[in-house]
């Protein structure tokens, strides 16, 4: 059987014409390079935009926004992308852009589209909230398995690594450029938001979604709302959301994220109370102001999966005979 299989394979290869298919195969295998395109958003600050899509093979998992900050002491990155390959491409692109070595990488929260590229950097320069380090320690292997399943070769060489530097201060200065570090929560159990005091740029991590529906796999909506309230009281000038385009107003991303989670909370509660099943709840209409959010249906159906069973347990009365 092995011999005949080899013969079949040999036959297949032999029958491939020499030119055109070779290019097609080359395209398949050589295309696994992440294009890193930093766009200037403020003095010494660039954003690398992620695709406003689910994690898919055709985007290599590069769906989260990354921020590059040029400080006198060296280059600072916020988030590291989904894979070792991304982290390495990001490091090269950022160092070429600023002409300075990367000296600090902040990981805003545990999710793999933000954290799994950190292996491209020395562990001692990768900083995260203590809660985020604990989250990655607990859930990282599961995330890693999921990412390899979805992305296969994009993930090559990516190991589960932990940030080496727990953040215990409220700010950090790099050659006089001060970054304020805010320990918040709600999108996950520990969400880092960063304010670049020199330019007033707020880097919100996944506390902020802009024209892209918020994801809720580890969310606590009440705490998320509190964190958004806190960010709204900041005197920042503009905002980098975790997903979706740069927000020059600094307010639209906050308002959209809050409006979406308020609507989600109320709609899922109403759906359970009015007797809808999970499938039906996932098919409910998304009202006009929120329909601008990319991936809205996808995230709504994910959120139904995250919240519905617990809501049923809380909102539907006991009917068994005790």
């Amino acid at each position: 059987m092995i011999l005949s299989r080899r013969a079949v394979l040999g036959g297949l290869i032999a029958s491939i014409p020499a030119t055109a298919p070779a290019i097609a195969m080359g395209a398949t295998f050589a295309a696994l390079n992440y294009p890193i395109t930093p766009v200037a958003i403020a003095d010494g600050v660039w954003m690398v935009a992620g695709a406003d899509e689910p994690i898919r093979r055709d985007n290599g998992g590069a769906i989260a926004n990354i921020t590059i900050i040029d400080t006198p002491a060296g280059t600072v990155l916020v988030d590291s992308g989904p894979s070792l390959r991304y982290g390495e491409a990001l490091k090269a692109a950022a160092e070429q852009l600023t002409g300075r070595k990367v000296i600090r990488v902040y990981i805003t929260h545990l999710h793999p589209d933000h954290a799994m590229g950190l292996g491209a950097f020395p562990q001692e320069i990768v900083a995260a909230l203590p809660g985020t380090i604990a989250d990655i320690q607990r859930d990282g292997q599961g995330f890693s398995d999921g990412m390899y399943r979805l992305l296969d070769d994009w993930m090559r060489g990516t190991d589960l690594k932990l940030p080496g530097l727990p953040i215990r201060t409220e700010s950090e200065s790099f050659g006089g450029r001060t970054l304020r570090l805010m320990a918040l929560s709600g999108h996950s159990s520990a969400d880092l938001a960063i304010l670049d005091e020199h330019t007033g740029t707020l880097i919100g991590g996944d506390l902020l979604f802009h024209r892209r529906a918020p994801a809720t796999p580890t969310a606590d909506l009440a705490r998320w709302r509190e964190s958004l309230g806190m960010l709204d009281r900041l005197l920042h000038k503009s905002a980098v959301p975790g997903h979706g385009p740069f927000d020059p107003s600094g307010r639209e991303a906050i308002a959209q994220t809050r409006d979406w989670i308020d609507w989600l909370d109320q709609s899922l509660t109403d759906a359970v109370r009015s007797g809808l099943d999970m499938v039906e709840a996932g098919e409910m209409a998304i009202p006009a102001p929120l329909s601008v959010m990319a991936a809205g249906r996808y995230e709504l159906q994910r959120s139904v999966s995250h919240f519905y069973p617990a809501l049923e347990g809380r909102l539907l009365p006991r009917i068994d005979k005790v």
């Binding site: 796999p217 999970m278 499938v279 999966s305």
Partner: peptide, 14 residues
Amino acid sequence: SMPQIAEDQHRFPV
């Protein structure tokens, strides 16, 4: 009818 993604393979609504 089913969701477009199996977010939770232990609990997929149909």
